[in-house]
Design a protein around this nucleic acid. Structure first.
Lengths: 353, 353
DNA sequence: CTGAAAGCGCTTACAG
DNA sequence: CTGAAAGCGCTTACAG
């Protein structure tokens, strides 16, 4: 391995001078600079990162901690992160936790002992939602800056937060359904414990209230956040409608708002299996705009999240925090927008409002 | 930051002894070991990776170089890699090249100067296919072990190769179509330059030959390897069939074999737009088994690649090469298998063979 | 503008 | 079984 001493010898200068040229960190005469640059090129010298890190206490490495990179939501975020940090001369360590709290903690420790200069974590595992404060406190003990991407409501004070304003997108989606003539809108949400679920449910209720419609608890269903979950919950819902003789035809939901796209697609598959047409019999709206959403039949109306920008901005905040440890902690909220497709085309049998 | 000196002082021993306990690298009395372990626990000491790396010339880091982690094929491979290397105490640097050769070379250089202990690259960008030898030679200069995941035919001698035997899967798919009564089978392949295309085309031709059928060049189409590409090529193909009065109904292809799933799905969308039914009018087979394949209507028959295992085995080979630099270079070939779904259900209007 | 020297935090012969 | 010391390859005050 060629070292800075080899270069210094070839160039006929001291290692201090070579270092100054390499890092542009001090006055060097043009002539000397040229000699050094030639020597560097001649032997193809590249500084050893470990030695540099040991001296500077910087690694030029950051870590991205996600539940599972196979999930498209996280892989798009990771591209946003990666593209930004590479521009700043950083490399990215990728860590999958599978939502396992122990794995998260293991990674955190790895980060605290100088393996990386900072990290981005997204989103908190299920356990975090139940015990967010303890978790954040433990994270805050790390003396490295970190950024969180997620659906938290409050400021934490210990880190930057980059989040998508899902309530705006949800509201837009509700307005779209209401303006299309729907008044019986079912909501398929996740388990109570997940903050993602509560946010969207809140926006759902607000949407109804604004139109002077009351919230019917019978139209709110809890479901697993998966295709299978959506499918089974939709079946349960349909069976319930059909077996209840007291409900007139008019009281059957004409639209379903699902907490995410996979659930929405599961719903569509269940409706199809029951001979119900989408959107003619039931309109369906999802959330996230996964690639699949524009390929299934009918193409899914959904709320798009700015995934790439979530990653990009988180990385930009992290770069700032690393460069200036006095940089105040901020919370960045990105807008979400409704993408109207075939699963909710305005019902023709409804009179204009 | 607490160092090994702090621990030594607390435990009342020398740093040598602390190091021996930490690395289990020498004789230590039980009593001393206990003292050291208590001191380590008391201050929560963790060795500084940079200092250790500088001394040992090992980083416990590997890099995975892929075109784009958003592509599900690569994200699944990355999980295979990650899961294995983490087990060995390594972390994974993720690098996206977008198929850009300059980016590949940049990453390679980063690797040669001690940033990582080895790397996995998958698959070679388009440029590699045209100039594989030069590329491999430049890679071979790196003194770090590396493993390639891809569709190379020959041994390179400079690195391990892990590849899926796509020809077997292709052959199975062809047999499936032929046994279902199809004899006019179109092939939608990628540009000639891509080795992935030539491999599969070869298997397509062999499949026909084995049944005593001749290869009709008019049934072989070149397409972009994307949904859009498949869609447009299928339209071109259908227009061609329809505008050619010399072709009788019997000479129209009844099956299409696409070089990958996205192309196959594009084909299905085009067929649908033209009022052709799948599989009744035309059967379609894809390649890769992307998640989408089992969700579209009709569900797609396709050849599944062992993506996770590709990553897993590549990582296992890399770990071996790092541990023992004398380990011989090997090529590992994994099987692929046909997954039959709705897009090729046997045609009922064809007599049993 | 340039160089000699200290030191970042470890591991590892070497000596005892 | 244990410790003193060298050295991995850099950067950075400090002196000139």
């Amino acid at each position: 391995m060629t070292t800075i001493y080899d270069v210094a010898k070839i160039a006929g200068v001291s290692v201090s001078t070579v270092s100054r040229v390499l890092n542009d960190s001090g006055p060097v005469s043009d002539e000397t600079r040229k000699k050094v640059e030639e020597a560097v090129a001649a032997v193809g010298y590249r500084p050893n990162p470990s030695a540099r890190s040991l001296r500077t206490q910087k690694t030029d490495l950051i870590a991205l901690i996600v539940p599972d990179i196979i999930n498209e939501y996280f892989s798009v975020i990771s591209r946003g992160v990666q593209d930004v940090v590479e521009q700043h001369g950083y490399h990215m360590l990728l860590c999958n936790t599978d939502g396992n709290e122990n794995a998260e903690i293991d990674y955190m420790q790895m980060l605290e002992n100088g393996r990386v200069d900072g990290f981005i974590i997204t989103p908190p595992g299920p356990n975090l939602n139940q015990n967010a404060d303890d978790y954040l406190r433990s994270l805050g003990r790390a003396d490295k800056p970190f950024v969180m991407i997620g659906d938290r409501l409050g400021e934490t004070g210990v880190c930057d937060i980059v989040t998508a304003d899902t309530s705006v997108g949800t509201r837009e989606a509700m307005m779209h359904l209401l303006e299309s003539g729907h008044s019986m809108i079912a909501y398929l949400g996740g388990p109570e414990a997940k903050s993602v679920a509560t946010n969207r449910l809140k926006a759902y209720k607000q949407g109804l209230s604004r139109r002077g419609l009351s919230v019917n608890k019978e139209l709110i269903y809890e479901t697993d956040l998966s295709l299978q979950g959506g499918y089974e919950t939709a079946r349960r819902m349909i069976d319930q409608w059909r077996s209840s003789p007291s409900k007139s035809a008019g009281s059957i939901p004409t639209a379903i708002f699902a907490v995410n796209d996979m659930v929405a697609i599961g719903v569509i598959m269940a409706l199809r299996d029951y001979g119900l047409r989408v959107p003619e019999d039931v309109a369906v709206v999802g959330f996230d705009d996964v690639p699949l959403a524009s390929f299934i039949q009918p193409r899914l109306t959904t709320v798009a999240q700015p995934k790439y920008d979530l990653g990009r901005l988180a990385a930009e905040r992290l770069m700032l925090q690393i460069a200036d440890t006095g940089e105040p902690k901020r919370k960045i909220i990105l807008p979400t927008r409704l993408v109207v497709r075939e699963s909710t085309q305005p019902r023709q049998d409804v009179p204009f409002l």
